[in-house]
Computed example of a mutant assay.
Amino acid sequence: MQTPENLAKIVIVTAAYGYQTVKDLGGQAELLKHIAESGADGVEIRRELFVEGEINHLDALAEKIRQHGLIAFYSVPESLFLPGGEVNPSLADFLSEAESLGAHKLKIALGNFKPGLDLTALKVLVKQHRVEVVVENDQTPDGGILHPMNAFFFAAESLHLPVAMTFDMANWLWVGQDALEAAKTLSEHVSYVHVKAAQERNGKLHAVALDDSDGSWKPVLAALPRSAPRGIEFPLEGDDLTAVTRYYVDLLRKEAAEAQ
């Protein structure tokens, strides 16, 4: 079952299954069957989870994704801005990889953005590619704080820089920020949501499945654009990966329908 046109698409982040599971199955391509059969609309492929040599065969992976009737997003474990404010010199390569994968979006962390940086060269590069760049709040003091993130999107908007935001619902907790305040502040820039909850155990935060959380994710999600695709990034664990994935796909669809 695909998402009705008036509801946000549901995307499964391969990292939700855990590094070891992905490795044991033989790579991210082996998850596509579970994702498609769960009724999800798409998959977020993670660069850091490629098996050896896989990055050289992105066209083949793209074809498998299409055969399963899924859309693709692409995530790289890198920052857009390096220390000193330089735009990541590998961004052009990441954009090309995303295009080979047939990805609609390229997700990357903000990094060391400082107000006043000249974004003209970044604008030129991004406009040369058809992939949407979506900048995520991560779990670092540089890329996970509301003020620099808001300043970046203000600067991008002023320059008509075609970038949007991946709003990770739980990462704010790792840097002591209020997720609901961030959602209300940044909502207009958000085109993709990482649905995630977190819980403190033994003094450390851990990502948890929605059913294992305190429910604080609900008002945060409600404050974000209803049309933005929802990426399931919280742990998907169990003997039947299709079933557990389907359960949460259905839960998020029900949540979206009730918000209409």
Rank of each mutant, 00 (worst) to 15 (best):
S100G: 06
L117S: 08
L106Q: 01
V87E: 05
G111P: 02
L106W: 03
K105I: 00
F94N: 07
A109N: 15
V131E: 02
S90P: 00
L119M: 09
V124Q: 15
V87W: 04
P148H: 14
L106Y: 03
G85D: 12
K127I: 10
G144T: 10
E136S: 06
A121F: 01
H104Y: 07
A109Y: 09
N137C: 02
S96Y: 03
K127L: 14
L91V: 12
N137A: 01
N88K: 06
D138L: 00
G144N: 02
V87D: 05
A92L: 12
T140P: 08
G85H: 14
Q139W: 10
K107S: 06
G111A: 04
D142H: 13
I108W: 01
V135E: 00
D93C: 11
S96C: 08
L110G: 03
L146A: 05
P89S: 13
V135W: 00
K105S: 02
G144R: 03
G111Y: 02
T120M: 09
V133F: 00
V131L: 07
L95R: 09
E97L: 12
D142G: 00
S100V: 01
I108K: 00
N88M: 12
N137K: 06
L91I: 14
N137E: 03
D118N: 15
S96Q: 11
L110C: 04
L91S: 11
S96A: 13
E86A: 15
G143W: 02
I145W: 04
P89F: 13
K105A: 02
L101I: 09
N88F: 09
A103C: 12
N112L: 06
